Amino acid sequence: MKALRIALVAFAALLLAACSSGPVRRVSEPAARIQQLTVNADGSWSVDLRLENYSSMPMRFERVELKLEVGGHAAGTLQAAPALDIGPESADVVNVRLAPGAAAKIAAADALAARRSLPYRLEGRIDATPEDRDTRDFDVATRSALNPAPGLPGVLR
């Protein structure tokens, strides 16, 4: 009986010790996607880039460099140095201006005029700093599509 009591006390102590370690702090690769693309009157684009932090800790997004392709045509490179802190498992948006290539402009104009979706691809890297750690480079590759926003001329979401 005494051995059983000692074993139960030891087991309870082990359980208590396991609980005291706190939540797991993991760093997951961030992601980026286009939340909105607005075609401006001068032909430039205003791109609302959604930066997503899938880590269980805050991360500071230092630099973004992503090649953008729309409708199978190179549009240019989205570059930003947002210095933006994003909480764990959260997201935020940064606006990037872009002077797109001619073929990409035509693809976007055609999608807007025909009221159809515009496939896009982002490829490049995000430099981010997890809390209490060194800056890391994360490779990003995203494929998705944008659709004309009803009632908002020149806007794809």
Rank of each mutant, 00 (worst) to 15 (best):
A41V: 08
A107C: 01
L37C: 12
M59Y: 05
V64A: 13
R115L: 02
A107Y: 01
H73A: 11
W45I: 08
S55Q: 14
D48Q: 12
A83E: 15
V64S: 12
V9C: 13
V47L: 03
E65A: 10
R5C: 15
P88C: 00
T38L: 14
P30V: 10
N40H: 07
L51A: 06
L66G: 07
H73T: 06
A109Q: 00
I126P: 02
E89V: 07
M59N: 12
E29N: 14
A18W: 07
L15P: 00
W45R: 02
G72R: 10
Y54W: 14
E123C: 01
S55K: 14
S44L: 03
L78D: 04
D42A: 05
N53H: 14
V70A: 08
R60S: 10
P119E: 04
L84N: 11
R116I: 08
I34G: 13
V47N: 04
G43K: 06
A7K: 14
G71K: 09
A18K: 05
Y54K: 14
D92V: 07
L15G: 07
A108C: 00
A81K: 13
G22P: 11
I34W: 10
G71I: 08
H73M: 05
A80N: 07
P30E: 11
R50M: 09
A74F: 08
L8W: 15
A91Q: 09
V47C: 04
I6C: 14
A75P: 06
L66E: 02
P88A: 08
A41W: 04
N95S: 13
E65Y: 04
R5Y: 15
L98G: 02
R50D: 09
E29D: 14
A12M: 11
L8A: 15
A32L: 03
A12R: 06
M59A: 12
